[in-house]
Simulated scan of single mutants.
Amino acid sequence: MAEKQTTPHGGKNVLGGPLAPCCTSPVTGYYRDGFCHTGKGDAGVHTICAEMTEEFLVFSRSRGNDLSTPVPEFEFPGLKPGDRWCLCAPRWKEAYDAGMAPRVLLEACHMSSLEFASLEELREFAIEE
């Protein structure tokens, strides 16, 4: 059995294990390396690996962040339902509070996410793989 790839940055996930990749098609992450790790310059804290839904994409657009429209100059392909993406932790929590949160891949959510959402909240939306 092949071992899962983990972040080259040594980050930990919300479960305390090594940070797993979120998505490479489209390539996500603040650093566009497929991982939801964070660092200096990531003011949005892009640490929650979420699976997009139409409802969440509409919600995010209504809050001023259109995730559906491509923005090539920022290497952003535009998202569709089913895509996985490293979301800003405060936006995910806002969606959670509004009843619009997308599902998350816990192994790929950086531990910094816990500054915005509890592990219990994230577990409610966990993707089983």
Rank of each mutant, 00 (worst) to 15 (best):
T53Y: 10
T53S: 15
E54Y: 10
E54P: 01
E55W: 01
E55L: 04
F56A: 01
F56L: 08
L57T: 03
V58S: 14
V58L: 15
V58R: 14
V58N: 15
F59I: 04
F59S: 02
S60N: 11
R61D: 08
G64S: 05
N65H: 10
D66A: 12
S68I: 03
S68K: 15
S68W: 03
T69P: 04
T69L: 10
P70H: 12
P72F: 04
E73S: 13
E73T: 07
F74E: 02
E75I: 01
E75F: 10
E75W: 04
F76A: 03
F76S: 01
P77K: 02
G78M: 04
G78T: 06
L79S: 05
P81N: 11
G82F: 11
D83T: 10
R84C: 13
R84I: 02
W85H: 12
W85T: 06
C86A: 13
C86Y: 02
C88Q: 03
P90A: 05
P90Y: 00
R91N: 03
W92E: 02
W92N: 00
Y96I: 00
D97H: 01
D97R: 08
A98C: 11
A98F: 09
A98M: 11
A98T: 09
A98L: 10
G99T: 08
M100Y: 06
M100V: 05
M100P: 03
A101T: 05
A101K: 02
P102F: 03
P102K: 03
R103Y: 00
R103F: 06
R103I: 05
V104I: 11
L105I: 09
L106E: 02
E107N: 11
E107T: 13
A108V: 07
A108I: 07
A108G: 08
C109T: 05
C109Y: 01
H110Y: 12
H110I: 05
H110P: 00
H110V: 04
M111W: 07
M111S: 14
S112K: 12
S112R: 10
S112Q: 13
S113N: 07
S113G: 13
L114Y: 09
L114R: 09
L114P: 03
E115M: 14
E115D: 15
F116I: 06
F116E: 07
A117K: 00
A117Q: 06
A117H: 04
A117P: 01
A117W: 07
A117V: 09
A117N: 05
S118V: 14
